[in-house]
Design a protein around this nucleic acid. Sequence first.
DNA 1: TATTTGCTATATAAAAAAAGTATGGAGGGC
DNA 2: GCCCTCCATACTTTTTTTATATAGCAAATA
Lengths: 298, 298
Amino acid sequence: MNFKQLEYFAAVAEEGSISGASRALHVAQPPISRQLSLLEDELGVTLFLRTNKGVALTEAGRCLYQHSRQMFQSLRTMADSVRDVEAGARGQLKLGVIYSDVQTATQLLKQYHAQYPQVELYVRMGAPGDLLDDLGRGELHVLFLRSQSGRSFGLRERVLGEDPLELVMCPETDPAPGQDAVPIQALRNVPMCLLRSDDLWNYSRDLLEECRRAGFAPSVACHCYDTPMEMQMVQAGFGVGFLPRSIVAAHPGSPVYTKPVLEFSAKSYPILVWENDPYQSGCVKRFLELAETLGGTL
Amino acid sequence: MNFKQLEYFAAVAEEGSISGASRALHVAQPPISRQLSLLEDELGVTLFLRTNKGVALTEAGRCLYQHSRQMFQSLRTMADSVRDVEAGARGQLKLGVIYSDVQTATQLLKQYHAQYPQVELYVRMGAPGDLLDDLGRGELHVLFLRSQSGRSFGLRERVLGEDPLELVMCPETDPAPGQDAVPIQALRNVPMCLLRSDDLWNYSRDLLEECRRAGFAPSVACHCYDTPMEMQMVQAGFGVGFLPRSIVAAHPGSPVYTKPVLEFSAKSYPILVWENDPYQSGCVKRFLELAETLGGTL
DNA sequence: TATTTGCTATATAAAAAAAGTATGGAGGGC
DNA sequence: GCCCTCCATACTTTTTTTATATAGCAAATA
């Protein structure tokens, strides 16, 4: 059986005669007659009662006609879906986001979803190392990470914006109350909550270096494995943190705020990271294109 | 697009290589390569990434593969359904039943349904004339009727059994209490409830004739348009009825019972009636065959 | 480094399938 | 009784599909 036979069959069923279908399909009458016979032979079933006034569906023919309608519908759906997937309008997009990038990610994804509402979004939050592992295994397509120093991952990346690194504090731990910026000497005896120093994405490495140059080593009250925990510790009054400024936007209603270090400025850069694969799926391509377009507007 | 292309495509997807599919399908490799290209051209989509180690599905290819599985499933279902309909194992069977035949009909249908559980049964009860109209319009396939005199309807029919016509009564209207049969003279002044005399299926016509021969005309207390109403009138004590004996079996718990007329015996014959159409649907054929088989066992 | 191996793509010839042409039979309508 | 329409069959032509032969390519191997 093939689609052509089904198509001929349906036309005959609708026209009520083989010659009618012949005219409708712009095909000679004998081929249709013949394909119909072949179809009947293959199914082992009589589909039409032939008379000299046309043909009439048998019960079995009616059954086949109903199924054939569904079949054609399925066929159209199939082709459309496949084209949508290729175009990136349908499919799955799996994203990894580090905590510091939640703001950036949700903003970008909102725009993406508005443009491609049919794409299924999968998002996971995690530590950069874990996310990179998943990217390598192909379980994630794109990551929202931070590049502090323009370090390369052997992957493709794109900078989405910039975000100054600042001290994070509550009123009771503010080392320089009433001032817009904190002189570095004010940190001399201030306990700090910093990301643990062996983390690749250790924002505070350069700050610690700067402190050493200023003649002191800050006291690290707590080594944090991840940003959310660092925020919690700062909020609990354990000490002063050092994080991208936008992190406080993710904590509305929190007493936490940031101030720059007076003599030292550093920035972190939100970036997208993805495998350098020329055969990315459509929706990944579209997503990366959108990120390219929106560029620094985030 | 045709099924062969989908079949080739699915085989390649499952084998992971064109040459693998070639071996699995017992078809040379170039035709598969070619049909795959044609499919891709028609869809305007890349389905596989070709390498020298085989091929890998793209996102669009995965989508097509999932759909193709459903497609093949639909195809099988379609063929099976059509064959079932032709064989009479599936479809619709629409039956008309007169009141007197309810017992016969339900017995036969029980057996039929046990054998062909997938056939949708439609049953309607009605007056013989209405049912015959519906049969003529093709809205019913087979009727359960009564033939009293072997009268022909210009349709095909088959006798399913026989059923003696007897007097129907309650204890308080019994014309011959304590006797097994009622002498015809005992009916001389008994009020009767009979089907109206112009009904084609008037069971009592011959009884009235017999009464006239016995020298009296019975008093008809009520002319009934249909059998159920006659039963109700008899049960209410209006008078004595005259109906097929099996009718009381349809009234379990009723005080009504039957007795034969001593000097007069008559029978009615439950019959099946259907259009003399050589192109009956499969389930009608099977139903009539079953009726033929079970013949007089009802 | 050269070779072998396994894969896909292309060109061409052979085979198969489908379409078209011509024609015949069958059943209503005039 | 004749004609008209419709479906089926025989036969020819065209199109499509398959098979054979071969080339390119990349990775594994000697």
